[in-house]
Computed example of a mutant assay.
Amino acid sequence: MLKLNSSFRSLASRSLSTRQLFYEKRGKPEKVVQLRTIELADTLAPEEVLIEWQAAPINPADINQIQGTYAVRPSLPAAAGLEGAARVSKIGSAVKSVKPGDQVLTSYVIPGTWTDFGIYDQKNLIKIDNDLPIEHAALFKVNPPSVYLMLKEYAQLKKGDWVVQNCANSAAGKQVIQVCKLFL
């Protein structure tokens, strides 16, 4: 899991800068992913939220997205990273859904977690329990919903049923076991 450095800085022009991993073309991550520093607005629109990414895993889906083999293919250039957990740093004047210090995730359609900071519309943020450890929160967006839907919506499991899976030592594999135990 990437542990992001909080080296957020205010420049003389009062703009804010952040580091971000991004790619301009699809291919092998080690060949196409680049680090850049981007400037963020120093003021927020009424519905905007400034968040600080606390942790972001490197998920196989991230690699596939960069390669261009994942089902979701953002337009290029694209910021890398599908999952991660962040803390709210600052809110716009009309934001009611979160407050500074809240732990949040971005909605599924918003990539770009491999960065230090970002500005998002409040409608694209999901507030989660502040007591959820960051290493669990950062892994909450991709595999757990897939596992839950697979076991609850695509199968009609009954007590005593068996679930056969491959890659059982992956994060999703471990979550299948955990969710099956909850269903008993």
Rank of each mutant, 00 (worst) to 15 (best):
M1Q: 07
K3R: 13
L4Q: 03
S13K: 09
S17Q: 08
F22T: 10
Y23D: 12
Y23R: 11
E24A: 08
R26K: 08
P29S: 05
Q34M: 09
I38D: 13
E39W: 01
L40K: 12
A41T: 14
A41G: 01
T43Y: 07
A45Q: 14
P46F: 09
E48Y: 11
L50P: 08
I51R: 05
W53E: 05
A55W: 00
A61I: 04
D62A: 00
D62H: 03
I63W: 02
N64R: 04
N64D: 00
T69G: 01
Y70I: 01
A71N: 10
V72C: 05
R73N: 07
S75A: 10
G84W: 02
A85D: 02
A86S: 12
K90S: 13
I91F: 10
V95N: 04
D102S: 04
D102C: 01
L105G: 07
T106K: 05
T106C: 02
V109M: 14
P111S: 10
P111N: 11
G112H: 02
T113F: 12
T115F: 09
D116V: 12
F117S: 04
F117T: 15
Y120M: 04
Y120H: 11
D121G: 06
N124D: 13
N124V: 01
N124C: 00
L125Y: 02
L125M: 09
I128E: 00
H136T: 14
A137V: 03
A137N: 07
A138F: 03
P144L: 09
Y154C: 09
K158T: 13
K158H: 06
K159I: 15
G160Y: 03
V163M: 02
Q165R: 10
A172E: 02
Q175P: 10
C180Q: 05
